[in-house]
Design a protein around this nucleic acid. Sequence first.
DNA 1: AGCTGTAACTTGGTCCTACAAGTGATCACG
DNA 2: CGTGATCACTTGTAGGACCAAGTTACAGCT
Lengths: 260, 260
Amino acid sequence: MAPTPAPENSALYRELAMRLRHAISDGTYPPGSRLPSEHELAQSFGMARSTVRRALTILGEDGLIASHQGARRTVLAEPRLQSFGELRSFSRWARSIGEVPGGRVDLLERRGASAVQARELGLAPGDPLVYLVRVRMLTGVPVMIERTAYVERAGLRLSFIDLEHESISDRLEEHGIVFAHAEHTIDAVNASADDARLLEIEPGRAILRERRRATDPQGRPLEWSEDRYVGDGVAFTIRNSLAMSPLTRGRAVSTTGNPP
Amino acid sequence: MAPTPAPENSALYRELAMRLRHAISDGTYPPGSRLPSEHELAQSFGMARSTVRRALTILGEDGLIASHQGARRTVLAEPRLQSFGELRSFSRWARSIGEVPGGRVDLLERRGASAVQARELGLAPGDPLVYLVRVRMLTGVPVMIERTAYVERAGLRLSFIDLEHESISDRLEEHGIVFAHAEHTIDAVNASADDARLLEIEPGRAILRERRRATDPQGRPLEWSEDRYVGDGVAFTIRNSLAMSPLTRGRAVSTTGNPP
DNA sequence: AGCTGTAACTTGGTCCTACAAGTGATCACG
DNA sequence: CGTGATCACTTGTAGGACCAAGTTACAGCT
């Protein structure tokens, strides 16, 4: 058999993973049930067992199925719609849950990198970058303040974007700037007077703070952002397994200094 | 070549992944440098390319290396000591960062499941479970309140454990109760009067709340826990990539009701 | 010097085989 | 009727082959 040339960006194993995910969420394989054996899947989809295994590995990493030597795989949970894009982009996430994303630009300027920003973006202090502060809303209600420093390469493209309504991620990707890796640090702080004003809440309310550094496929930093979510508006969810755990608990570092 | 019989629980590819991880953290392959090619690694470790690839896949999922068709893999970051065990167990985590874990039991009793607990643990409301409230400390300083509901199977073992000093996870594993999957939901709330008293902070301070459901390898729920961390004491970190993203952002659900 | 085209190298994807190790159900036997 | 041994099935690990597609470096040409 000739190895299929892969029609689009879709590999066979990713295709199958997607199909199985759907099959789980549409009730073909409800939680608690067992999946067909690797052999059967290979047979019925016309691919090799190794390819099937690769697809199943993905579902396992997502925490959707459990597997043990000797026994058929068990469906654990229904998949949540989630993707890297939804996580990085507020707009995409908002649309995916049926809300209307909105934003108000509070500040957009070219400036020199602070010490923290320089360290996180791999620049020298004072190197030029683009700094953007936005209040993000879900269907009119403010839920998050976003303070992002973009490296120049990405940031200069921002001038051409309608920041109030368009998705920065979408636009940047069209210009060949792709976000591939991200590191998120999550903790809790009390709302400052400034936060309270922008989010229309009382000062002191609990804020879920996410600091994020995103890089391109080569690992070069693209953005460093501090997002502050209204405490009771948003939650983060992680699934992990013995085999794979991308989540770490750490002592909080006081990188509080995100400049005015 | 006969496939090596695997000396311990260690598979070849996991062995190699571990070695590479060490090689990265000890500076052999510093961030920014490129790894040897799959072929070279296979050669020098005497294994097949497919096995090497499997090891490299793991590092990629951990966000340690970036890889692109055609070019050698690039080292992105140093590995953080992290493991599923450290994430689930406060004791293990504390020891791993060089602190002395401590705890004070506030409450331990057998009781009937509340509606929320029943749903999360797959029980009927009123079914017996074991409920444990502890204040956890790092080197004497309280940093977290842990309110955990164990299914009976796991919970009944608790009576034999010295809850103030021993690690519950360690002990339960010795009894054949293994935690294999977990789902964590993280948001921020303000400290209640009760929280403030137990954690020795002022009421209203920002609290990082982690709700967690852990299951055994078969996917059967073992525990459902709500942990409240002092906001400026602890942070969670997640790495993710285009290829894999176990982290989801969701609207906060008001599962606030963890009983008195 | 600068550019271009090509060849060698490198990773991505698919398929195959073989064997080890654990599970589950059947079946024969006491 | 229970019980234990057996065996087919299933997943885990390892090795290997082949080609596609992207990157890099170098040689040679202008």
